[in-house]
Write a protein that binds this DNA or RNA. Sequence first.
RNA 1: UGGAGUGUAGCCAAGCGGUAAGGCAGCGGGUUUUGAUCCCGUCAUGCGAAGGUUCGAAUCCUUCCACUCCAGCCA
Length: 570
Amino acid sequence: MNDNTTDTASPDVKPLNFLQQIIKKDLADGAHTQITTRFPPEPNGYLHIGHAKAICLNFGLAQEFGGGCNLRFDDTNPEKEDQEYIDSITRDVQWLGFEWAGEIKYASSYFETFYQWAQHLIETGKAYVCHLSADQARKYRGDTKVAGTNSPYRDRSVDENLAELAKMRAGDYDEGACTLRAKIDMAAPNFNLRDPMLYRIRKQTHHQTGDKWCIYPTYDFAHGQEDAIEGVTHSICTLEFADHRPLYEWFTANLPVPSQPRQYEFARLELNYTVTSKRKLKQLVDENLVDGWDDPRMPTIAGMRRRGYSADSIRNFCDLIGVTKSGSTIDVGTLEFAVRDDLNENAPRAMCVLDPVKVVIDNFAECNTVDGIELLSQPAHPNREELGKRELPFTETLYIDRADFTEDTTLSRKKFKRLVAGEYVRLRGAYVIKSNDIVKDNQGNITELRCSLVPNTVGENPPEGIRPRGVIHWVSAEKNIDCEVRLYDRLFNAAAPDAGDKNFIDALNPESLQIIQGCKAELSLQSAQIEQSYQFEREGYFCLDSKHSCDEKFVFNRAIGLKDNWANKV
RNA sequence: UGGAGUGUAGCCAAGCGGUAAGGCAGCGGGUUUUGAUCCCGUCAUGCGAAGGUUCGAAUCCUUCCACUCCAGCCA
């Protein structure tokens, strides 16, 4: 029997992923008494679903094993970074429901220490200032077959290197004139060890440090040290950094760092029909192909939030897909499942008619009305009584969806479970009605359906012999709210929009957004709040759009439709 | 072809020498005042391939194959 589950006695427990196994062992061995992880985004774009996986992993591991997780901005390249991204990232992590340990951390707050460590490396003969141009440096680096060549600047004296580094810091050199490099091994099979750059000159104002610095550490010269300074025990990153691990370890071994973090790599999340690359997402935003970083079609956390995906569903999704080292592409269907699963459980129900056609109840007088209205009551959720009830005003004129009526009387009961001319249908939470007459305009369009209700069928079965074909949703034509509904489809038509040398822009789905005006929603939605999702029965899950909704105008986004097992079968 | 990594069902993923968990998708059926939910059933004689070791191999060994990443003064 192995011990890779939290409780081997129970068959229902999730098996531990490889990182959980490592941490569990480290804790058991006494290698650590407490663990610390970190989520280290560069503030150069908005967070997306891929980051959500990393966030859930790092914060989740800390939570599970009683440690802490830092939120640290890896802000070593002012060229691409911006305060706007820091704000959005902070907001997104919070919204996902995670709490970082202590204050927010910044790599830039360690710059002075990094500089001293650079001097330390020079003093121990392990770094030098190199005046090779970027072009020359590339040639000196060699390739897979030929070893690199030592830079002619490699053997400068300690004093000269110190002086040159000081001049770099002082701004005496132009951008690109020189770099500080580690002196490791130009023949190393791993390119990262062929005297990697440690500092480069960037005469740019930094969003945190202003103009204090004109030299900035590279990722390699910063990341491991940041982890060490913060006491990170398990530094978890994606697969492409595996080749950097020897360098990561070289720095923590050759510098007087306060702790020895370990790096572990996992496979980043890939989703089909989706692009997860900050560069590409930024391009969609910059070229106005979407409505900003938080466009509901974007796989960004802000976009999914605005669309109506709950934080819970995103966390559940990350839980569902697992953590491994094998590169994989998850089917978006799995994400959609997680969204539906959560929303089905938690979203109150409501009714909204997207394509209204008027229904007049000829025998409305048979209702129990007060001022022309019969107030019906419906639970907010079919199997969660604690969510309360809502009131539905039933009036003489109603709206149903055009698609829920047909004049074709040949359709079988199995094939069409809605209203057919001359037949019966149940109005959800209300009466069974019968279609009597059809009123059309001179173009032949249906303008009105004259129907009659079957008395005493609210919450009761109709008398013997009356068999409604199904249940359809409806809204009072007199008491409702007018609204705009936005339906979203996948942003890309291709499963792998950026595969090979394809231009992902070409794969954009021109029908990814459909705006419908003149929809009629039930009155209770008057009090709908931003961030509150509803299931519009028989339609899907909707929430108010945080950007376009206002007091005068209701705009609902459809997060996702209801699962439809029937559409494919007919 | 130098280095690093990965191959278990359509998509994920357990498995750690004792005879292929689970989820998503699919398929079949039942319940239902949402064509939803829910419930039941079904879905790998097979673990990239071929050899070998063993009473026994997805697990160990050998060889091979496929795919991903790396030659930024990006992260």
